[in-house]
């Protein structure tokens, strides 16, 4: 399989990319830090990738970098089967409430920019007759919650976009995979207290790769969150308010 990953130098993206490398898939990395990309490319090569791993510039906060980045990926890999987006920004609610600029950045990156990136990727995949678009949303987007108002809203929008995309283009050959991780221990969550079911990126990576292989429209990682969120989504509003979840 030929895979393009945006955000694979870090966290969950790194773990997913390693899974692809171990299988010997062709990989192209997109990101904004040349040095980090270089190091991650070497890492994947040393972890089983069969060929040299190329990378290109693409910054989620610079939409004009999307098309050139993806074009480079398409050219290098000679066509692409799957595009995986793990890039995004997290902001704690308390933080976002007092720092407007940061809030704008989180909302833009996690919704507008991600969607615009997906649009470019979608067009390219459909031109080739189809492919898989896998995007990391979050369980935080499944229900409006007091702890993650802004971040959750951006992720909710993203999840809705991906579902719409799925309905509109699946028949044309575009398979969207919306990954909804629970708490995953990465550098960016290191300062938060880990809740129950917290897990490591390596634990969720195989499940994500399997979902991409199968084209599963929505996948919760770890799987337990599917049932937790099912319950949460069914809670009436007064109960939701009461438990202050």
């Amino acid at each position: 399989m030929k895979v393009v990953l945006l955000g694979a130098t870090k966290g969950m993206g790194r773990a997913v990319a390693r899974k692809f490398a171990e299988r010997g898939d062709s990989i192209f990395l997109l990101g904004r830090d040349q040095d980090e990309l270089e190091r991650s490319a070497l890492d994947l090569e040393n972890r089983g990738a069969r060929q040299r791993i190329e990378y290109g510039f693409c910054d989620l906060l610079q939409p004009r970098s999307f098309e050139p980045g993806l074009a480079q990926a398409w050219e290098t890999l000679d066509g692409v089967d799957a595009v995986v987006v793990t890039a995004g920004i997290f902001g704690a609610q308390e933080d976002l409430e007092v720092r407007d600029a940061h809030a704008a950045r989180v909302l833009t990156a996690d919704f507008t920019s991600t969607v615009l990136f997906c649009e470019v990727a979608r067009k390219r995949l459909l031109e080739d007759g189809g492919g898989t678009l896998c995007v990391f949303s979050s369980v935080a987007g499944d229900r409006g919650r007091s702890k993650v108002v802004l971040y959750g809203a951006a992720k909710a929008g993203l999840s809705a976009y991906l579902e719409g995309l799925d309905h509109r283009y699946r028949r044309a050959g575009l398979r969207t995979v919306c990954v909804k991780p629970g708490f995953v221990r990465t550098a960016m969550t290191a300062d938060l207290d880990a809740p129950p079911f917290a897990c490591d990126p390596e634990t969720i990576a195989p499940r994500v790769v399997r979902a991409i292989d199968r084209g599963t429209p929505v996948v919760y990682v770890p799987g337990i969150w599917r049932w937790v969120l099912l319950a949460i989504r069914m809670l009436p509003r007064f109960a939701m308010r009461r438990i202050d979840f």
Binding site: G7, K10, I89, F90, P181, P196, I243, F245
Partner: peptide
Amino acid sequence: RKIGKIEVETMSE
């Protein structure tokens, strides 16, 4: 209650 703090993936700021 603790489940409130959720997921992240990182990229730029």
